[in-house]
């Protein structure tokens, strides 16, 4: 079919456009576009991670900001201990090396997701939504009260983490690092959603009862999916803390979880590209609307309503089945 020939062509065109973006932005005097695009990439990772449990697995988590925030705080806390030259808990030395902080963020958010998942996945439906929300809010209040790490004000990270051989003070370099991470993330996600594991996960979304009747124990599979998803959000949070040079309780707030969910719904639930499109639409709309009116959230809400009512599958569906829809 013509469709399958189009796929690689479209993907390569997209990648070329993304690589060219900072230079084009600079040449045309819209430098801010590069920063905007960096945020889109990072939020795209977070939204796609949420979508893995929400869209593919049918688990409506309202607490994914917890993983995003913890990823950011891992970077911030490791930086603070590095800057003050005193080990965390007297044991773990701080660091400003991205090759250590990103894996650390993945690890910590994975552990947190295992804990939150273990507590919440025994339930379902509205209960699951409420428990994930409540646990994430507990973490939010924990960090608000942690004065050592800035409490309410958050943690300033004076310098972006370093990567060997790169000048991480350059906004373009940060963009390219985020792009590289996003591409790698996307490639992994692509394999993942076409794997045997995803076949089970999508089956569970459709009917847990059926899956049990063919001999499956749902819980383990849901938990592993939840951990993978949490790690993705943790990665996004670590990148965001590097990009903003700041980690704050806002990253953990329930409204952030809501934003991720809006991105997924805007872009298209249960699709590969949808969350990235959703993140782009969300970030662009937010900055456009915010420059016109301080009631930008109202405008965004209306647009979301229209998307939900009229597109049946988000912006992704409007772009007529781009690659990736299962």
């Amino acid at each position: 079919m013509a469709h399958s020939y189009m796929r690689p062509v479209l993907l390569i065109a997209l990648l070329v456009a993304l690589i060219a973006l900072p230079s084009v932005a600079q040449a045309s005097g819209y430098n801010a576009v590069t920063s905007l695009a960096t945020r889109v990439l990072i939020y795209g990772i977070a939204a796609a991670s949420l979508n893995f449990v929400l869209g593919y697995g049918g688990m409506v988590s309202f607490g994914h900001a917890a993983f995003f925030g913890i990823g950011g705080y891992v970077v911030g806390i490791l930086y603070q201990h590095f800057a003050l030259e005193e080990p965390l808990l007297g044991l773990i030395p701080g660091t400003n090396q991205m090759l250590i902080t990103l894996p650390a963020a993945l690890l910590v958010s994975g552990i947190l997701a295992a804990a939150i998942g273990a507590l919440s996945l025994r339930t379902g439906g509205v209960q699951f939504i409420m428990i994930t929300l409540a646990l994430a809010q507990m973490l939010f209040f924990l960090f608000v009260s942690l004065k050592t790490y800035g409490g309410d004000d958050g943690l300033i990270i004076r310098r972006t983490n370093e990567l060997p051989g790169l000048n991480m003070r350059d906004k373009h370099t940060i963009y390219y690092v985020c792009l590289a991470v996003t591409v790698a993330f996307f490639a992994l996600l692509y394999r993942l959603v076409h794997s045997r594991f995803a076949q089970i996960l999508v089956g569970l979304r459709q009917s847990e009862r059926r899956m049990a009747a063919i001999g499956l124990s749902p819980y383990r599979y849901k938990l592993v999916a939840f951990i993978i998803s949490g790690m993705g959000c943790g990665l996004a949070g670590a990148l965001m803390a590097n990009f903003l040079r700041y980690a704050s309780p806002d990253m953990l707030h329930w409204t952030k979880s809501g934003e991720f969910m809006v991105m997924v719904i805007l872009g298209g639930v249960g699709t590969l590209f949808g969350p990235f499109i959703g993140a782009a639409v969300f970030i662009v709309l937010e900055s456009l609307l915010a420059s016109w009116t301080e009631h930008w959230q109202l405008g965004l809400g209306l647009i979301l309503l229209l998307v939900v009512l009229y597109t049946q599958g988000g912006v992704q569906a409007v772009f007529s089945r781009l690659p990736g829809r299962r």
Partner: peptide, 21 residues
């Protein structure tokens, strides 16, 4: 196929495309 897969017990596989199996 999903029932066969569950019976085989090889479902923690994250990399190979199931459609090509």
């Amino acid at each position: 196929a999903v029932a066969v897969q569950v019976r085989q017990g090889h479902s923690f596989r994250f990399w190979k495309p199931v459609a090509k199996d």
